[in-house]
């Protein structure tokens, strides 16, 4: 497993599973005994976001910082002022959930210089082979360039989150190892995490990170 940094940013292509991964990672950090904060900096999604898990995170003792307008009818890309606490809160570990693509990553630009100065950040590139735009390493590279240009922060590692939603099978995850390796070779960053649904059982993949789905379908009982 990767070594926890003071600030871990989850960024990547729209719909690659950043929110879910960020929430799971926050729970994992907390289990390691770290004081943990989740920052929902998504300025793109009107709903279905990490703030949806605020109650469960709160119950686990994880602080949640999100725009006060998130999940409301106020359609403005506002950032929460408390986001600055990721640089000031002593002993706190912060998990940042960014919106997708260059549009969503723009929000991090505000903090790019402070991040560079903090020197203990990690920015993970979340990839999913079943998203058409990132199905190939070349597609991922395009997304990487767009995001880094938008937020002026460089990625430090790759989080392979290949999944087909509820239809994900073991073979999908196992087959994606080669894909993640090819992405790693092309963009020159290490794969630091292979995320997969915990109920698939234990899988022999690089840096396994079993997760549970935190966003429950609102139409189910």
């Amino acid at each position: 497993m990767l070594e926890a940094k003071k600030i871990t940013v989850f960024a990547g292509h729209y719909g690659s599973g950043k929110s879910n991964l960020a929430v799971n990672y926050a729970f994992w950090l907390k289990q390691q005994g770290k004081e943990t904060t989740l920052l929902d900096l998504d300025i793109v999604n009107p709903y279905f976001r990490s703030k949806d898990s605020e109650k469960e995170l709160g119950e686990a003792g994880i602080r949640v910082i999100a725009s006060e307008f998130a999940n409301s009818n106020v359609d403005v890309p506002a950032l929460p002022p408390a986001a600055y606490s990721m640089f000031t809160a002593d002993g706190h570990y912060s998990v940042v959930d960014l919106g997708g693509d260059d549009r969503g990553s723009l929000a991090l630009g505000r903090f790019s210089e402070m991040l560079a100065a903090a020197d203990t950040y990690e920015m993970l590139l979340v990839i999913n082979q079943f998203r058409p735009d990132t199905a190939t390493p070349e597609g991922v590279l395009e997304v990487v360039r767009e995001i880094e240009d938008a937020c002026h922060v460089k990625f430090t590692g790759i989080a392979n989150n290949t999944n087909l939603g509820a239809m994900t099978e073991k073979s999908h995850v196992l087959d994606s190892v080669a894909y993640a390796k090819a992405v790693s070779d092309l963009i020159g960053l290490p794969v630091v995490m292979t995320a997969y649904r915990a109920d698939l059982g234990e899988l022999d993949v690089p840096h396994p990170f079993p997760i549970t789905l935190t966003t429950k379908a609102i139409w189910s009982i």
Binding site: P132, A135, M167
Partner: peptide, 16 residues
């Protein structure tokens, strides 16, 4: 494109 892909409803509509 792979047999099955994971897409948002809006994206799927645009691609379709």
């Amino acid at each position: 494109m792979a047999d099955k892909v994971l897409m948002k409803g809006n994206e799927a509509l645009a691609e379709a």
